[in-house]
Amino acid sequence: MSAREQLAATLACGAVLAAAPWLLSDFLLSLALSCLMYAALAVSWAMFCGPTHYLSLATSAFFGLGAYVTAWSLESLPYGVAVLAGGLIGVAFAALIGAAVLHLRGAYFAVITFGLGELTLHLITYTEKTYFHTAGRIISDAPDNAAIYWTVLVLTLGAVATAILVRASRLGLALRGIGADEERAQTLGVDTRRVKILAFALSAFFPGALGAAMAVRWTYIEPLSVFNPFIGFQTVLMAMLGGAHTLIGPIVSAVFFSLVSEFLRLRFPYVFLLLLGLLLIALILYLPGGLASLLRRRGRADA
């Protein structure tokens, strides 16, 4: 599929999905919301980490920061503006830490991005306690579920469209070169430092904006709940299991795992994490190329 066709397909899916609030029950709508959220997180993670083989654990930090933008500003700003601001804060934060740590690779990069997330969590906890004398914040007059759903849908479509455009662009080519052999890419004229910071920052818009958009689902916001590392780990696992180098893999995988984990949580409330863990182990052992490798086996899936 060409980039144009992929964009058209994305738009068509979006049009169908936009009808959900009128058709689905509250429960199913919230399930769809969590599928969309994880699809957007996984796609935006894979946008940078897929081609470059970086392992970023900063998703939770971007998400949490975005959520706090909403917590701080919802009384003075419209919801849509808060969501946009959350995305931009994610971009700014990613550009800052990207400039500082993108020269690190492998486990070092993973650990430091995780550490920076924890640092942000504690910084916010400290700020809230010291200057605002509060441990958490209550979100009042949240938008209704349909508005949240449409906002998250727009963000998801935006993430997919951005991923499509990046893959088809010189930026995407440069990222692939960086993943294959960074120094070689440099000797062929790629300013790898600039490219990496740019792409990392771009990919952080969506987790930041999603954090801001999803924050209103909690009535009470505290650092530990919105900077939940589990969100970041889930995102990474979904993207990798789906096949982070593909476009469709992370989407399919995010939807699949959101549904499975919801089903397990309802049917086996006590052992669901255990079952999820076993499922992940089985997939890693028997399907290391991710779910996308299944599609590929059948014929030419997306490249």
Binding site: L173, R176, G177, A180, D181, E183, R184, A185, Q186, T187, L188, G189, V190, D191, T192
Partner: peptide, 30 residues
């Protein structure tokens, strides 16, 4: 290195460092 490349210095590597997963054509196109 990218500054040298931009000024017209191009090199090969003794142990080939081609982008293995890309086609030969894409390597040159890069």
């Amino acid at each position: 290195p990218h500054v040298f490349a931009a000024h017209g210095v191009a090199r090969t590597f003794q142990m080939p460092r081609v982008f293995r997963d890309m086609s030969a054509e894409d390597n040159v196109r890069f």
